[in-house]
Design a protein around this nucleic acid. Sequence first.
DNA 1: GTAGGGTTAG
Length: 456
Amino acid sequence: MAGNKFSSYHLAAALRREPDPAAALRLFLNPPASATPFRYSLRCYDLIISRLAAARLFPAMESILSRLASSSGPRPREQLLCRVVSAYGRARLPAAARRAFAHPAFPGPRTARALNALLHALLACRAPLRDLLAVCRDAGTPPDACTYNILMRAAAASGSLAHARHMFDEMLRRGIAPTVVTFGTLVAALCAAGQLEGAFEVKEVMVRQYHVLPNVYVYTSLIKGLCEKGDVDAAVALKEEMAGKADLVLDSAVYATLVRALFQVGRKGAVVGLLEEMKGSGVVADTVVYNAMLAGFCEDEKDLAAAFAVLDDMQKNGCKADAVSYNTLVAGLCKLGRWRDAHELVEDMPRQGCHPDVVTYRMLFDGMCAAEEFLEANQVLDEMVFKGFAPSNDGAQKFVQGIEKEGDVVLLESVLCRLAKVNALVPSGWEKAVSGALNDPTELRLEKQLDSLRIA
DNA sequence: GTAGGGTTAG
């Protein structure tokens, strides 16, 4: 490195230091004026693309990817491709995930790792199993155990245990050994379908026939399955079985499941003992456990005062409330008709370091509509649309009917216009509209629209 | 951040 000249090494360091992704982008595009021209290292590309992907600044990310594609330097690793594909999955942009998978910046052929990233992204977007199978066929990449695990989960998600079983059989035929994740997926699917006998059978067979021991994931699914059948005692007994196994460590998920179940069957008194046991065995009450209690007090006990006391406890114990915590409280308040309190709570969220998500807004909006407070709901809709969140179908429908009844034609028009903006009138229409622009840096005129749709 | 469980809506 020659003296103190600004090089790609310094740029990489500066990118790492910059907390704001937009500022990092500016830094990448316009390095300090003192810098002599230098070739961007792959490390710099990797850093900026990863950062933009995480921040969902997709148009900017795509333009850097194109630049990378046309540069003559070394090719990026597939790991970066996986990150881009996953980011599109999290943003629920399936078409963009597919295009990224085939992006020319990344040298082929694709490995199972990239294929699996795409499959998982599509699963997150609730693509049907047949779409996932078509992707596998077209990619021509040999599947691995992880591929089959994703396919099995997709099968279960579309309600077909038969297909999940079929995937399992196919996996065996192709000589791919099922892992503990495979069995965990099967058990979860069976439990979700209420087929407890089958689920417990898998637990036996995985040990006997495949020599794979059930882990805490398998047990937690079974515990939840038993709870849903109303057999909390059997669920607690299963937890005891776990506690007796040296290779298993009870975690907060197990306790959260049981806490929620105890509330549901009206045995909230038993929760105290459970929490003490937890403390005694060194399991920290985390957000998920507190959220289970919040849900118990809101949904089951309808005791909002107790729920807010739990929220205070969380803060006292250094446990940060997340969107699920607030959503539970908002739903509880709205169900009691206390939409004003719910509104106040939502407005306080950012100050508490938690941003409302789509569920928060939908619940508040629905709560106001249920109370026939359409003008208040209209204000919330404004904020939602600004952030790119669409109301639920039911909420939007009830709202439009309410506004119609009020007879304010101008307002109605503005409402329909805003609903159209977030495509709440024609579900999933907008992604098609922008599909051509995403991989084409010369055509970023839809950038603003996309930006307005990204989730903060 | 290639895969599985647990707390909120659907």
